[in-house]
Design a protein around this nucleic acid. Structure first.
Lengths: 186, 186
DNA sequence: GTCATTTCTTACCAAATGTCAAGAGAAGTC
DNA sequence: GACTTCTCTTGACATTTGGTAAGAAATGAC
């Protein structure tokens, strides 16, 4: 759980006992390419830290899969509002490659929130950072061209292009696979 | 502060003493059309509940103002990550009409988080709801046409079109004022 | 009310992106 | 290794949206 430990220490200063207590609430899980971490229609009862691999979040609209986000190592993934409020979730979360995850269940998470103040602090930071990240993509979506978004993604997450089918990447930046193919060509 | 009270009660069950304690951390503020609640470059030290009026969040890119969001009565507005982490903020928050606000400072907010568990609970819900809202707009941005986004906004927030300059609305759904004008024509 | 300023609309044309269909290439299966 | 299936690319064309510039309409200032 080294990676998760580092991720937490990067955000909050915390003593080893608390840290170990938090880590012990997580369970290792491996899922194979094509497996689902979460399915549309289910309640989301868990959150995952991605140790290795890629997962994508998508929804199907008029027969087409729209990939909203692709999570990579070092990030958390869950269906946030369903996880928090136990409302019906509409996202699918599918492993794009074989993945190693550290998974925490809802009960453990909320128990930690009450018993380990540092976990609550970490959770808040996680939320705020996720919000800022989303804000940034949304803003880009509002005023940039497909080419600019492609270039930015290429610069910031080049590994994505090696491991994730291009059609998912295209969808994530709001274009068709054909358009992405043309952008790559030039 | 009736509106704010209702907003809180809608999210969490809370006793009157705590509720009054929370409300007393807010101050009334009136700002005139054109005034700024926050300017790009500043640290964001406060968060506002909008009692009446409209405010827009925007940033300037290559000489053009891009409106990211328009807040209306019953909603909170702040530059989230700057408010939370005290990082340099890049959003401008400007009153589009005269506004009545209830404002809470950062110190008061974090003090309440420690002393009034219900405020923390409310804050978490607020964050999660904001995230879900943003998620939804972003998703729409990925797979819908300008016309669809226009129709949706028209159906969900028709008042916006009465009180907010169309150029800001256009920007918020990722199109030019000219395009919005054409959509409105048909 | 009159004038100046800002905002909105319109027309024309250009550029970006989507759609469809076909085929090439890569990956998975037996 | 041959086959099937999935993924990516390409070309032709359609559609959507943007850019520019001009004028109309609305708003604000005096």
């Amino acid at each position: 759980m080294e990676a998760l430990k580092k991720c937490i220490l990067k955000q909050v200063s915390i003593n080893l006992i608390s840290l170990e207590n938090i880590l012990s609430a997580f369970e290792c899980a491996e899922i194979k390419k094509g497996d689902y971490f979460l399915r549309s229609g289910d309640l989301c009862r868990k959150m995952a830290f991605i140790q290795t691999g890629y997962l994508r979040m998508y929804d199907t609209v008029q027969g087409k899969e729209i990939t909203f986000w692709i999570g990579s190592s070092g990030r958390f993934i869950t269906s946030l509002s369903s996880f928090v409020f136990q409302t019906r979730n509409f996202w699918n979360i599918e492993a794009v490659t074989d993945c190693k995850l550290y998974v925490i269940g809802r009960e453990n998470h909320f128990h930690l929130c009450k018993t380990e103040p540092k976990w609550l602090e970490f959770d808040n930071a996680l939320l705020a950072h996720s919000f800022a990240l989303l804000e940034r993509s949304m803003f880009a979506q509002l005023h940039t061209t497909a080419r600019q978004r492609f270039d930015t993604l290429m610069a910031e997450e080049p590994e994505l292009f090696h491991y994730v089918p291009l059609q998912y990447i295209a969808s994530m930046i709001g274009i068709t696979p054909e358009s992405l193919s043309r952008l790559r060509k030039n």
